[in-house]
Design a protein around this nucleic acid. Structure first.
Lengths: 290, 290
DNA sequence: ATTCATGCATGCAGTATTGCATGTGTTACA
DNA sequence: TGTAACACATGCAATACTGCATGCATGAAT
């Protein structure tokens, strides 16, 4: 007769995750509980929502329809959470940030230290990583991102323009003085797994020694002398043991943005953090360009 | 951190009902439970949603906002339930109908009997009453209504045009033969608590003896000889002990409609019931007009 | 002033829900 | 042809939730 809203939510997560275990993990409950909630929803709706196959729960047409509507309900829940956060005028509670791993040490951490001193009742939760947190789902209140634009339907402040350049251990700077014939090893990023064109013109004997999917590891490899890495200039300058080398000319890179959802933007905590972080970046703007 | 959807629903009902007890009744749980769910929601959101005043729970600004969004979630739930019902091709399970109390005996009940025989696996649930069931909230699958139009955003079939006329016990027919001076007593409906104008022209000594808010009671009063009642002609004709009297000329009355929500309309059960009910009404169309 | 009705808080006991442990069937891989 | 790994069902014990009973405060009616 009457459906439990949390059971609808559970159906949504089983459809999303494809298995009871995945849904259970997402919901923070045991998969047994998930199975029982599905059974309860089916009996409440008097409909089969999933077919129990050997390789998991396969949603029926009705199950998919339930999931669609539950997704809309979930979207309304996220709207609510964002708006509540946006209208929260307290300088207490949790503030969730995300930032690129490598920007945290030199730039974000000092700002957090300042913020924590000014607003001791706020607990800052920092998600390091390059995955874009979904600000619409309120996975974070504020994101520091390296990108060309703030992104779809989000509010943003451009904190700095950026250049990139080639950096390496000092030994490579010496080698480059040997002239055009020098053999130059490169550590390159997975998505652009080749030596920059300009580098090949300057040093035709350039070659790739390592392709990597993680910039922190690449920085480590560069420090250890493995080869040359193209990276944002702030990062090369902030890393002891690296020097800028003339393998390529500095060039424009994606900007540094502070991004938030417009619903969350007016929140007191978010506003207070902005007012500390943005001047910090602006003051040190020169460190980002060649 | 994570809000329970049913707690949001509970907040909605406390805002709607104005008290824990009212919300508990609406949700079918004890008010104590409502109080605890509110407390849980407040702690999950880290916000005060209600002020505990002597005369009940008064929602704060945040509480109202939660309720708004919960109402939208509820609307999505209703969308879902309607669509599931609309796409249900089974001729089993429950079918919920509403009809005006006095039309059930002579018209709806015979159709239900026919339907029950044809589709024994369907359990028909009949809500008698004049309150309009909210078909959007799925309070009913189909409604038989006396009205000028099917109503906002609903699908409808006009099953019969209707006239009204004056009916009374036979004694009043005799009295009216006495001529213009006869004293005619009326039993009138609450919303139109006066003698019809035309009746006053024909019998200037007409007067109101009873104002009533229930047509069934008025029919009973008429049968017992208390006075004349204006009613749909089908009702006067179907009621033993009443005859049509020339106190007023028959006149056009609101039509009889079969109304449903477009989402629910395609359901097999709804379709099957229509195919029995509508011909029944159409066949007996003449009984509704003078 | 007294009584009643309404609205809520709280302690306690029963019930329902949950998580864990164990067992079965299927698929992928060596 | 074993052997994991995964996905799920089920029985049992612990936990969380719920409802009831009682008590307090407020306001309306007598």
């Amino acid at each position: 007769m009457n459906v439990d809203w949390d059971d609808l939510k559970t159906v949504l997560h089983v459809v999303r995750g494809g298995s009871l275990a995945a849904a259970g993990a997402a919901l923070g409950v045991n998969y047994t509980t998930v199975a029982r909630r599905i059974a309860r929803a089916e009996s409440a709706l008097d409909m089969i929502l999933f077919e129990r196959l050997a390789d998991g729960y396969q949603p029926t047409r009705a199950g998919l329809r339930v999931a669609e509507h539950a997704a809309e309900m979930e979207a309304r829940e996220h709207d609510l959470l964002r708006q509540l956060q946006g209208q929260d005028e307290r300088l207490s509670g949790r503030l969730v940030l995300t930032a690129p791993q490598l920007m945290i040490g030199p730039y974000v951490a000092p700002a957090i230290a300042q913020f924590a001193e000014a607003h001791p009742a706020v607990e800052v939760y920092l998600k390091a990583g390059n995955e874009l947190a979904d600000l619409t789902r309120r996975e974070a209140d504020l994101a520091i991102r390296i990108s060309a634009s703030p992104g779809d339907s989000l509010t943003g402040l451009r904190m700095a323009a950026q250049d990139s350049a080639s950096f390496a251990a000092p030994i490579w700077a010496e080698r480059m003085t040997e002239g055009k014939a020098a053999v130059i090893d490169w550590v390159v990023y997975e998505q652009i797994a080749h030596v920059p064109k300009q580098a090949l013109e300057r040093f035709p004997n350039s070659r790739v020694v390592l392709v990597c999917n993680d910039m922190a590891a690449m920085v480590g490899a560069a420090v250890s002398g493995l080869g040359v890495v193209r990276m944002p200039v702030f990062l090369g300058r902030a890393t002891p043991g690296l020097v800028q080398v003339p393998a390529i000319e500095p060039q424009t890179y994606a900007d540094v943005w502070l991004v938030g959802h417009p619903d969350v933007w007016p929140s007191a905590k978010v506003k207070a953090f902005r007012e500390i972080l943005v001047p910090e970046f602006r003051k040190r703007r020169a460190e980002f360009v060649a």
